[in-house]
């Protein structure tokens, strides 16, 4: 692996020698990855390179064949359920489709993790917390009492994000947060992630296919290919590498358009 940029600060996620396979199919082999405090790390890779499997391994939904995983300095593999729970409540996860509980309203969905971990919080405060969390993710107030089936895809993702943020996590996992959103919704979601990072001091592990999102929000990008992380670094640093997949990914027609748009935006901000 090419470690281009040793990010400053404490390591929040440490993955070393990870191996995952399904039957004969090898997904990860000897994969190493470190995520530093306060950064937004984008994870990219072709379809089937195991981006989601990597996320699922880190959050403990997939038991790897080999390797070690540490989150907040705590080893996560083979932990007692109670100890794992203590670590788990320090992170939030947004699944691809939002994964909202369909029998609960949006606001009740946001309350579920709080009720589970902090039952002592009184009902009034609980409702207020749900209200400001929903508002922080940019949902209209009338979305609170709606059921997930009444929401559009973009609203469902925002609601999912509100639930992921329920416990004020230090670490946020986002699985393709802008997939399936229209460009306006996707841009708004990028803004939202940046604003939340500023407000809450989040570290973000972001899986995405969206080049605009990569340029707009990610501090560093990890590239998954050949069963492992082939490079980690800022986009200019990755571009300096002579790896065919990386070149094709960022210098393909779509990559160039996204890069152009990102330049334009920073130019405007500079004026």
């Amino acid at each position: 692996m090419v470690q281009l940029n040793i990010a400053e600060g404490e390591t929040i996620i440490h993955v070393a020698g990870l191996k995952n396979s399904f039957g004969d199919q090898l997904v990860h082999d000897n994969l190493d990855l470190d995520v530093k405090r306060g950064e937004i790390l984008g994870v990219v890779g072709g379809s089937g390179t195991g981006k989601s499997v990597l996320m699922r391994s880190i959050i403990g939904l997939q038991l790897p064949d080999q390797g070690e995983i540490e989150v907040f300095g705590e080893p996560m593999i083979g932990r007692e359920e109670y100890e794992a729970k203590q670590v788990r409540k320090r992170w939030g996860v947004l699944f691809q489709g939002g994964a909202l509980f369909s029998t609960l309203t949006v606001a009740e969905n946001v309350q579920v993790p709080i009720r589970e971990y902090y039952p002592q919080i009184d009902a009034v405060l609980l409702d207020e917390i749900a209200a400001y969390k929903v508002a922080m993710t940019g949902l209209a107030p009338d979305a609170g009492p709606k059921y997930p089936s009444e929401l559009s895809g973009g609203m469902r993702k925002r609601a999912g994000l509100a639930r992921a943020l329920a416990l004020d996590p230090q670490l946020l996992f986002l699985d393709e947060p802008t997939a399936g959103l229209d460009p306006i919704g996707a841009a708004a979601f990028d803004e939202l992630i940046l604003s939340l990072r500023r407000t809450l001091g989040l570290t973000v592990f972001l899986i995405t296919h969206d080049l605009d999102t990569l340029y707009a929000v990610c501090d560093r990008v990890a590239v998954l290919a050949d069963h492992t992380v082939i490079a980690v670094g800022t986009i200019p640093e990755l571009l300096a590498l002579d790896h065919p997949w990386i070149q094709e990914y960022f210098n393909g027609p779509r990559g160039r358009v996204a890069a152009g748009a990102a330049k334009l935006k920073t130019g405007e901000a500079g004026k």
Binding site: A107, A130, Y132, V134, A135, M136, P141, P145, K146
Partner: peptide
């Protein structure tokens, strides 16, 4: 900044229908 953001997020919200 955090306080300011919360001020902006202070909107009445119904929890249940």
């Amino acid at each position: 900044h955090l306080l300011e953001q919360l001020g902006q997020a202070d909107k009445p919200l119904k929890i249940r229908p």
